[in-house]
Design a binder for these strands. Sequence first.
DNA 1: TCTGGGGTCCTAGGACCC
DNA 2: TCTGGGGTCCTAGGACCC
Length: 416
Amino acid sequence: MFALVDCNNFYCSCERLFRPDLKQVPMVVLSNNDGCVVARSPEAKALGIGMGVPLFKVRDDIKRHGIRIFSSNYTLYGDISARVMQTLEQFTPRMEIYSIDEAFLDLSGIGKLDDYGRQIRTTVKQHVGIPVSIGIAPTKTLAKLANSAAKRFRATRGVVELCDPRRQQRLLAITPASDIWGIGRNLTRVLQRRGVKTALDLARMEPHRARRLSSVTLERTVRELNGENCIALEEATPKQQIVCSRSFGEKLTDNREVREAVCEFTARAAEKLRREKLLARMVSVFIRTSPFDETGTGYGNTATGTLPRPSSDTLEILHLVSRLFDMVWKNGGRYAKAGVMLGDFCSPDILQLDLFDTGTDHRRNDNLMRAVDSINRDGRGMIRFGGQRPRKDWFMRQEHLSPAYTTKWNCIPVVK
DNA sequence: TCTGGGGTCCTAGGACCC
DNA sequence: TCTGGGGTCCTAGGACCC
């Protein structure tokens, strides 16, 4: 049984903690360059300000309705998020922090779920001052749905417990398929063409058909809507990628200027890497013109390279970044955005084994069993197959979550 | 004029191997 | 002459999330 706890209008709620006078006043928080609206108070939502709209498009509405605007303060939001999460930890032994303002809680074995949810809500409000909504259901996808119902219907007073299959069906029937977690713009179109409109239509789809139509992710969604657990709780998984990228305030055309920006991103990314106590092997650089720029033909390019050895040293990484930058650079572009990505991490703490491709002999299994032993002993580690990163579904298979995930591998422990 | 930043996961396809 | 099946590893690109 899962609960999804989600902070209401998180960034706005954070700003209001220190400005109680802004209660009931319509307000929005803007993205980095004050480009887009990234959070809206309920009053601003009611005035029709959309999520993610560029500021220039709603400037008139803002003036007309006296909506207050704030630049974002991520240090503050991160700090308040940490306090919310600390408070939530008291309610469960297992929890997944899903984003800055959301967490899944494992509530297995708890009796009166609705009461428990209300208790969580009250405690967070008292301790931190942030209002939250809570959805409780047997799978993560249904918990997401329950959460959105808790937000949508006032009568629920912020908590929806969705364990009864009949209630699940009723809610699914009045929810468009596009509101389901994992169904984006594209899948909505694909589904609609096949007459799948409501979430209930989607739930009634044959799982194998869902897989053929799209991929295993859609199959999981369908199964989850029917109460079959396919997406496991992930407690503190290590980072797999670090990205530093930014849209430029004004378009850049000069090689030197863009190169400088990319150097800065590299330094920041390497800093994050060191803070995580990780080493990277893969480095990518990308630049692109604005997709909204109609003055020229659009251009974007990415180059990826491997470091001579795993590293978190800014200069070592910069050396490669500089070469990659030369590969992606093209004269004459009006560049709007650039970024640096680091990936394929390793750490001294992680046990690594390269297993042989054997086929007939049993070295692979022997190695695997030895690795499992040592992981069980130390409580931490990772098994790599010939340098390949273990994939998500291997983990799923090991858990025997569903017969849909059968494989030739018998047992692939990933991270413990 | 002004359009976020930071992530994850999946699939396809090519090169290569036995 | 026949031109396989099964696998690894890597990359690009698409889709989705908050």
